[in-house]
């Protein structure tokens, strides 16, 4: 989709870049020729259902597993061969943070900072304060959310250039989620790049400049939110004088819901014109349209339009 010109540009400013990245586990293909790039200073949202290959991609980027084919580069270096050098400038937070039961959160944060060899003391205190973490507790006594906070504090205190966050808020409460979002935006303000894999689509919508959607190991969509919206359906809500009949026979209509004279449905971008013309025959009283949320996009990609059949 990209012209040669922009491709050149992309290569220059890309922090993360994969080229036909493929990973097979035995006969099972977990990733199939994935191309993704994260530009400098942007927040890239990486979404997909469970088992679609998000974590596999991230583990390939971190050099923990070796690609079967294709390549992944970070800061222009090879993700597998130069893993140690790359990791000096990376902060990673996994979704499932398991720590060492007989060490305190404070000890673990210090270890993490020492291992990276950078980061500063003041930021550490600041982050502990921000996330309201008790660093004197043993890790065995932390809840899932608190263990995640330990990883987040260490990550955001590190001053890394690239943050790789794999569902980092799955155990946080809404207040802490907001703190997390502030930290991401602060990092972005400082020109850092962030790869955020998440299931919380409202979060991705709020934070991310660009989004990549992965399904069954293949990247099926990449672009800014508004670009993606063009590709999909619009939510329409119409109130008509007469009862609308036969709408479901049109192409590109889905999720039809009827309450009295008010009808709501989704329509594919290219069928919008036909749909409006059809509905207007019944005398429009009210017409509202809303851009699809990320959730709509997400679901439209993964469902084989089952709602079409459940017309009332």
């Amino acid at each position: 989709m990209l012209s040669n010109n922009t491709q050149m540009e992309v290569e220059i400013m890309s922090i993360v870049q994969t080229h036909n990245l493929t990973k097979k586990f035995g006969k099972f293909t977990a990733l199939d020729q994935v191309n993704l790039h994260v530009n400098e200073g942007e927040v890239y949202g990486f979404i997909g259902p469970n088992g679609s290959g998000k974590s596999t991609t991230i583990r390939l980027l971190l050099g923990m597993i070796k690609a079967t084919k294709g390549e992944a580069t970070i800061f222009g270096m090879d993700a597998w061969k130069d893993a140690v050098d790359i990791h000096k400038r990376i902060a990673y937070v996994p979704g499932d943070v398991n720590l060492w039961p007989n060490l305190t959160g404070g000890e673990v944060i210090d270890l993490f900072m020492k291992l990276r060899g950078a980061g500063n003391k003041n930021r550490r205190e600041e982050m502990i304060e921000k996330f309201k973490l008790d660093p004197s507790k043993k890790c065995r006594n932390y809840s899932k959310g608190n263990r995640q906070k330990v990883a987040l504090v260490a990550a955001f205190a590190s001053g890394a250039d690239l943050y790789i966050l794999d569902e980092p808020t799955s155990g946080l409460d809404p207040l802490m989620e907001r703190v997390f979002q502030e930290c991401v935006l602060d990092a972005k303000k400082d020109g850092k790049s962030i790869l955020l894999s998440s299931h919380i689509l409202s979060e991705v919508e709020k934070l991310c400049d660009r989004v990549g959607i992965i399904s069954e190991g293949k990247m099926i969509e990449t672009g800014t939110l508004s670009e993606l919206r063009h590709l999909t359906r619009t939510n329409l809500l119409v109130e008509t004088k007469l009862k609308v009949i036969g709408l479901h026979e049109l192409r590109g209509i889905s999720s039809i819901k009827e309450t009295g004279q008010v009808l709501s449905f989704q329509v594919d971008a290219e069928e919008l014109d036909v749909a409006i013309k059809y509905v207007s025959q019944f005398g429009i009283v009210r017409l509202e349209s809303a851009p699809p949320t990320l959730e709509d996009l997400f679901i439209s990609h993964y469902e084989v339009k089952p709602n079409v059949k459940t017309v009332i």
């Binding site: 923990m64 790359i86 990791h87 990673y92 996994p94 720590l99 993490f112 060899g117």
Partner: peptide, 15 residues
């Protein structure tokens, strides 16, 4: 198995 090695490995630490 518990994921601690993964966390450590994400730092500039040898394989």
């Amino acid at each position: 198995e518990d994921g601690q090695v993964e966390i450590i490995q994400a730092f500039p630490v040898g394989r």
